[in-house]
Design a binder for these strands. Structure first.
Lengths: 143, 143
DNA sequence: TTATTTAGTAATTATAATTTTACTAAATAT
DNA sequence: ATATTTAGTAAAATTATAATTACTAAATAA
């Protein structure tokens, strides 16, 4: 039974792949790595220090020094000392950084809304209920 | 109502982000781009020509020439002429190419199964039902 | 207190990704 | 029949990413 459940989860990932890879298209002004960093900050909705980003994105902290400072110069994020650890620096998105991310998500949102017309009323209700359930339970699993 | 539905979908994406970014860790022998290409072929479960991969992954076809030929030399994929279009070349994963991908998914599978213990029996049943529903309906939406 | 980790920075080298231009051959449009 | 578009290849130049080594200062362990 757990086997089938895990299988459904595995199946879900490719089903979202389209939306997912769409995230980093028309990324004009930013490099791949720069995009990853602000995307990571945006998704997790809080400030991180360099080490946390390094672990979360599985890239060397040495690489982040340049990436982050470039993003800072361009106004996408700000660095401020961590009051709890004088070695560390907390990195947070600026309104400009958030805006860039929100724009990307808005495109996914629109495409989804358009495709929704392929489902009838009942299917749409079912999908909403099921998505909500999945979100609630996946969140619980991670906590 | 559609608004809330789209919102649930948007929420789902970050919930899967962890598993998703885990896909391309411990990618030892392959470069980033090489990984993307065989991952794309694996997820879509059929042969593609270069142009299709180029569009699907949003990278220039000129880049793929090198990436694909390197993967071919290493035995991850094979190229064969498209019988329907004499200009085109169909690219398909070899057993070796599939194996590398399956190994990565197995790790996600295991981690999910482990986290599953944080849910009780009823929640697990609910999750399975909801995931199944989501998969069926998202597939229908794309078709 | 002293030794060891840990967070961040910096510079260098090697490798990979991206862009540009240009070409061939097959497919399609006029 | 001719012109144009499309799939794939190729080479060069630019830029980005990755890996290595080394350093400072703060935190933590002994």
């Amino acid at each position: 039974m757990k086997k089938e459940l895990a299988h459904e989860y595995i199946t879900l990932i490719p089903n979202l792949f389209g939306s997912f890879s769409e995230l980093n298209k028309n990324a004009t002004e930013l490099s791949h790595m720069q995009n990853h960093v602000i995307e990571y900050l945006f998704m997790n909705k809080r400030a991180f220090n360099l080490k946390e980003i390094s672990t979360g994105l599985d890239i060397a902290k040495q690489q982040l020094t340049n990436v982050v400072s470039a993003l800072e110069v361009q106004g996408y994020l700000v660095k401020k000392p961590d009051p709890k650890d004088k070695r560390a620096v907390l990195i947070a998105l600026t309104p400009k950084g958030k805006e860039v991310q929100e724009k990307k998500w808005a495109e996914i949102y629109n495409r989804f809304s358009q495709n929704l017309t392929k489902l009838n009323e009942e299917e749409q209700r079912d999908l909403q209920f099921a998505l909500h359930k999945v979100n609630v339970l996946l969140t619980k699993m991670e906590g």
